[in-house]
Simulated scan of single mutants.
Amino acid sequence: MNKEDLQNIIDKLEKEDRKEKAYFGIFEYGGGPDESFIKANKQGLELFAIDLLKAARDTEGLLKNETEKSVFPLGFDEDWVDDDCSTYIQYVEPTNEIRTNVKQEPYVETWTDKTMKFGCISAILIAIISAIVGIVTIIKWII
């Protein structure tokens, strides 16, 4: 999308006053950031989306300013952001980097894997047979 398209969307979203009813927060419910979630109502999501759209709109201009590391600040200290949330996203740092996906090749079972599987199954069978023979021998010895 170009700047004008993004600005049109931003303008449409900013027409309504959402700040009174908005609620937004990012929380962690477990052991780390991989267990995070967003708790928000519609108005809060729209306000957060406006900030992200503004960052997208201004990214090219920020990247042209090569004198210093440029960031786009987000409204993490606004009234509509929950004060008790555990994660605050304070700014967006634009980059020209392109993510490269490294495709993982499907795992091919080698002969050592097959041998290991056969060896483990054989050891379990030998242990079961030995246990049965031992129990039968003990019963015959008692009787």
Score class of each variant (00 low, 15 high):
Lys21Gln: 14
Asp17Gln: 12
Ala127Leu: 15
Ile138Thr: 12
Glu28Trp: 01
Ile132Asp: 05
Asn101Asp: 13
Gln43Ala: 15
Thr87Ala: 10
Ile124His: 05
Ile50Asp: 01
Glu60Lys: 03
Thr67Ala: 12
Glu60Phe: 01
Tyr91Gln: 13
Asp58Ile: 01
Ile135Met: 13
Glu4Ile: 07
Ser86Ile: 04
Gly75Ile: 00
Ala131Lys: 06
Leu74Pro: 02
Thr100Trp: 11
Tyr23Thr: 05
Lys140Leu: 13
Gly25Leu: 07
Glu14Leu: 05
Glu78Met: 01
Asp84Met: 14
Pro73Val: 00
Met116Leu: 14
Asn8Cys: 03
Met1Leu: 09
Ser70Asn: 14
Pro73Asp: 01
Phe27Val: 09
Thr112Tyr: 14
Ile50Leu: 02
Cys85Asp: 03
Lys54Val: 01
Pro33Phe: 10
Val108Leu: 09
Phe48Ser: 00
Glu68Phe: 06
Ile132Met: 12
Asn41Trp: 10
Ile9Asn: 04
Asp82Val: 02
Lys117Arg: 13
Ala49Met: 14
Lys69Gln: 13
Thr110His: 10
Val136Asn: 05
Thr87Asn: 08
Cys85His: 08
Lys19Pro: 00
Asp51Cys: 04
Ile26His: 08
Leu74Asn: 02
Ile139Thr: 07
Phe48His: 04
Glu78Ile: 02
Glu16Gln: 13
Asp34Ala: 12
Phe76Leu: 02
Pro73His: 00
Ile50Cys: 03
Thr115Arg: 12
Ile138Gly: 06
Asp79Asn: 09
Glu14Ala: 00
Lys3Met: 05
Ile10Asp: 06
Lys42Pro: 11
Leu52Glu: 02
Leu6Ala: 01
Thr95Glu: 13
Lys19Leu: 06
Glu35Pro: 00
Ile121Pro: 03
Lys103Thr: 13
Met116Thr: 15
Asp82Ile: 00
Thr67Lys: 13
Tyr23Leu: 05
Glu4Leu: 07
Thr110Ala: 12
Tyr91Thr: 06
Leu45Tyr: 10
Glu97Leu: 07
Ser130Trp: 07
Ala49Asp: 02
Ala49Gly: 06
Glu68Met: 07
Asp51Lys: 00
Gly32Tyr: 10
Lys117His: 11
Glu66Arg: 15
Lys54Ser: 05
Gln90Asp: 06
Glu105Trp: 10
Ile139Gly: 02
Tyr91Arg: 09
Gln90Ser: 11
Cys120Leu: 14
Lys15Ser: 04
Asp51Trp: 03
Asn8Met: 08
Ile26Lys: 06
Tyr91Val: 05
Gly61Ser: 09
Val133Ser: 13
Lys117Phe: 07
Ala49Trp: 03
Lys39Gln: 14
Thr67Leu: 11
Ile38Glu: 11
Ile50Ala: 01
Asp77Tyr: 07
Ile89Ala: 12
Ser130Thr: 14
Asn101Cys: 04
Lys117Asp: 12
Asp11Phe: 02
Leu52Tyr: 01
Leu47Asn: 02
Arg57Asn: 08
Ser36His: 08
Lys15Ala: 03
Ala127Tyr: 11
Ile142Cys: 05
Lys54Glu: 08
Arg99Trp: 15
Ala123Ile: 11
Lys64Thr: 07
Asp79Tyr: 06
Arg57His: 11
Lys114Ala: 12
Phe24Ser: 01
Ile138Asp: 09
Asp82Ala: 10
Gln90His: 10
Leu13Asp: 00
Gly30Trp: 13
Trp80Asn: 00
Phe76His: 13
